[in-house]
Design a protein around this nucleic acid. Structure first.
Lengths: 191, 191
DNA sequence: TCCTTCACTCAACAGGCGTTGAGTGAGTGG
DNA sequence: CCACTCACTCAACGCCTGTTGAGTGAAGGA
């Protein structure tokens, strides 16, 4: 018990804690309303803090957003295409259950905010490239990978952000079971 | 030549013309920037008109938007599922070539604006239902239809709104050729 | 204990937004 | 030719936004 359970939080600790609290509130609000409709004042209020403190921590609303959407899941790496698709589909479980707020915020804002669009382009590009690299080397491997990934994005949007009833009340494993053969068709070429 | 080529446009004609010009500018800007980032002033400027006139014609920015996204393509009707998918895919030709601005505006804003989200939910719900009605009657017909439609939405977003390079420089017919068998897998059930 | 540091708040600014009511001048019917 | 209609503009309002600089009071080292 040399390590006390509560080591008397120092001033720097408190500062880091409020910073984290602000960032969490920001992520939640950005995910729920998108960049434009989320005000610095609302983030501050949700974190129980003065708006000026938000600026002091992050400098700009844009930088706050950038930090909020950072650290998305790195694209999965692997050599077997079927395994990769399976990986995508099992991550669908997570996706349909509840994507991290940072990713939701990025998805939510990518159609209306240029910076968010850039971020999304890079993130999706990474996923596309790593999937394409695993596909049997054909000249349209990247195209097929892009179709798989964007189709996935559309389904996630319909389920998570639009809450389409047809997708809302379907169990995730059933969706995965239906999607699996279709994605197999997409990834293997046929003249 | 009893009908003169220019029947001397009356005052009502001019009014209708400016109204149409405003609506066109609005559609273009809403499609390009979404609801929030499009200002009434910008729409008025693009139409060569005073902002107040826009309000006089449409009452509210919201009503202007509602009118701009109205009259989307009605969901295709037909009884043969394969034909319907083909129909979706040929309309892909149009989609990838250039969706009407009204539809683009709806797509662009649906993640950040609640009204646009409602509009999109209704439009996509219609497409899903009409596709599901054509599928072999299974209890998951609606789910399969929803997956096809949302996947299509994702691909359209990636191509049209995000301009993903991997999709950007692929001919539409090649995309359709790759997608066709995959959508067939999606629409026909297999235990 | 005292003095400094600093996490945090307060009050305010400038700018842009949607929206409005009063005007104005060309078009139109008698 | 005159009076009226009406499509359209002008100037302004109130509100909300991101952002800032001065202030405040508790924590922390000497």
């Amino acid at each position: 018990m040399t390590d006390h359970p509560e080591p008397a939080p120092t001033r720097a600790d408190r500062r880091r804690a409020t910073r984290a609290r602000i960032l969490d509130s920001a992520r939640a609000l950005f995910a729920e309303r998108g960049f434009e409709r989320t005000t610095v004042r609302a983030v501050a209020a949700a974190a129980g803090v003065d708006p000026a403190l938000v600026m002091q921590h992050f400098g700009t609303k844009r930088e706050l957003f950038a930090e909020a959407v950072q650290a998305t899941t790195p694209p999965p790496a692997g050599s077997d295409p079927d395994a990769l698709v399976d990986q995508l589909l099992t991550s669908l479980d997570i996706k349909l259950g509840g994507l991290p707020d940072g990713t939701l915020a990025s998805l939510r804002s990518m159609l209306t905010d240029p910076d968010a669009a850039d971020h999304a382009r890079r993130a999706l590009g990474g996923q596309i490239d790593s999937l394409a690299a695993a596909l049997p080397s054909a000249d349209d491997a990247e195209l097929r990978a892009a179709l798989v990934v964007t189709a996935m994005v559309g389904i996630t949007i319909g389920h998570q952000l639009l809450a389409l009833p047809a997708l809302q009340d379907a169990p995730a494993d059933r969706i995965a079971a239906i999607l699996r053969p279709a994605f197999k068709c997409l990834t293997q070429e046929a003249t």
